[in-house]
Amino acid sequence: MNRKLLRPPGAADEIDFAARCIRCGMCAQACPYRAIRIAGLLDGLALMGTPVIKAREVPCYLCMKCPPVCPSGALDRRLKRKQDVRMGTALINRNECLAWQGTICRSCYQSCPVFDEAIKMDSELRPVVDRKKCVGCGICENVCPVDPAAIVVAPWSRM
């Protein structure tokens, strides 16, 4: 199953997550940034009531307050370090990215919480994502000055 929605940190893979999440909304209550929204019927019957993050609106700031409150284990309660989060991975659309098109822009590079590791600048000062380090928080997608964002987080689907 291709994951369409970005889930909070520590979410199990999509099939397991959908099965385990009891739609209680506690993670959304725990989120101090209101980044976690509750999916509605329009997102699909099976996903209704589950937590989603819309990074362009509010990304995940990796405060790590939501995994421990999950009552069902749909979010891995043991997850503590933000470097270990794997919500997804950022993808750069080089045709739209200002830096790749020759303008100077370091928005995503500078705001990345895994600084200078998940997003690095290459020799020609263009951002490059290291998929092994990227946590998928979506902060880069949120700050990208291009509209629509030239860097977007593709949610992980470990399938």
Partner: peptide, 9 residues
């Protein structure tokens, strides 16, 4: 106090 009537903490 957190949660809902699905799950309360």
């Amino acid at each position: 106090l957190m949660g809902s009537l699905y799950s309360l903490a």
